[in-house]
Amino acid sequence: MDLTVVSYAVYLVISLGLTVWVARTLSRNGRVFLADVLHGNEKLADAVNHLLVVGFYLVNLGFIALYLRDDTTVADARGVFEVLSRNLGVVLLVLGAMHLGNVYVLNRFRRRGLMDREQVPPVAPQGYAGQQGPWTAPASPAGGR
C-alpha cells in the first residue's frame, strides 16, 4: 500500500476522532451555559445546543475533507509523520478557533442576558400619555371658557 494513502487514512481517523470529541465536549458543557444564557429555558437551550453542534460538525468535517488533498508524495515513514503533523496541526488550530469563537459568541449572549435582567428603567412610570398627571396643565376653572 502506498504511504500517501496510509497518511490519508491515519489523518482521517485522528481528525474525525478529534472532531467528535471536541463536539461532544462542547455539547455537554455548553448546554449548561446555554441554559443560563436563555434564562433557564431547557428546551430552547437543547435546541440551540443541537444546532450549534450540527454547524460545528459541518464546518469542521468540510474543512477536514478539503484539507485531505495533498500534492506531496510520501516516500518513507518520516514523510508520513511530517504530513500528518502538518495536517493535524492545522485541523487542531481550526478546532481551537471554532471552540474559541463559540465561547466568545455565547459569552456575548450571556452578558447581554445578564444586563437585561439587571437593567431598571431610568424613571419610574407614572401613567400613560393623555392621562392627567403631574406633567399636565391643570383643568380650567368652571365657567371660564
Rank of each mutant, 00 (worst) to 15 (best):
I14Y: 05
I14E: 10
S15R: 09
S15A: 13
L16W: 07
G17F: 07
L18V: 05
L18C: 11
T19F: 01
T19L: 00
V20Q: 03
W21I: 03
A23L: 02
A23Q: 00
L26N: 03
S27K: 11
N29P: 02
N29C: 12
N29D: 11
N29W: 06
N29Y: 15
V32Q: 13
F33M: 09
F33E: 00
L34I: 03
L34R: 00
A35V: 01
D36V: 01
D36A: 03
D36R: 02
V37R: 01
V37L: 00
L38R: 00
L38P: 08
L38A: 04
G40E: 05
G40S: 06
G40F: 04
N41D: 03
N41E: 04
N41S: 10
E42K: 04
K43D: 15
L44M: 11
L44D: 03
L44H: 05
A45F: 02
D46W: 05
V48L: 08
V48Q: 09
N49S: 02
L51S: 07
L52A: 08
V54M: 10
F56L: 01
Y57K: 01
Y57F: 06
Y57Q: 09
Y57N: 00
L58I: 03
L58Q: 01
L58H: 00
L58T: 09
V59P: 00
N60F: 01
N60G: 09
N60A: 09
L61C: 11
G62C: 07
G62H: 11
F63Y: 04
F63M: 07
I64C: 14
A65G: 10
L66H: 12
L66R: 03
L66F: 06
L66N: 03
L68R: 06
R69L: 13
R69I: 12
R69C: 04
R69S: 05
D70G: 14
D70N: 12
D71A: 14
D71T: 14
T72V: 12
T72G: 13
T73Q: 09
V74N: 01
V74G: 10
V74D: 01
A75K: 07
D76V: 12
D76C: 03
D76P: 07
A77D: 01
R78Y: 12
R78D: 12
G79N: 10
V80R: 13
F81C: 14
V83M: 10
L84H: 08
S85V: 15
N87P: 09
N87M: 11
L88M: 10
V90S: 03
L92G: 11
L92K: 06
L92D: 02
L92Y: 07
L92T: 07
V94F: 08
L95C: 05
L95P: 04
G96T: 08
A97F: 02
M98Q: 07
M98E: 04
M98L: 02
H99G: 06
L100T: 04
L100G: 12
L100W: 06
G101N: 02
G101F: 02
N102H: 11
Y104C: 06
V105F: 15
L106E: 10
L106H: 04
R111K: 03
R111A: 06
R112K: 11
R112P: 00
G113C: 13
L114D: 06
M115Y: 15
M115L: 14
D116W: 13
D116V: 13
R117D: 00
R117A: 12
E118Q: 10
E118N: 08
E118I: 06
E118G: 15
Q119L: 15
Q119D: 15
V120N: 15
V120G: 05
P121V: 15
P121G: 12
P121A: 12
P122L: 13
P122R: 13
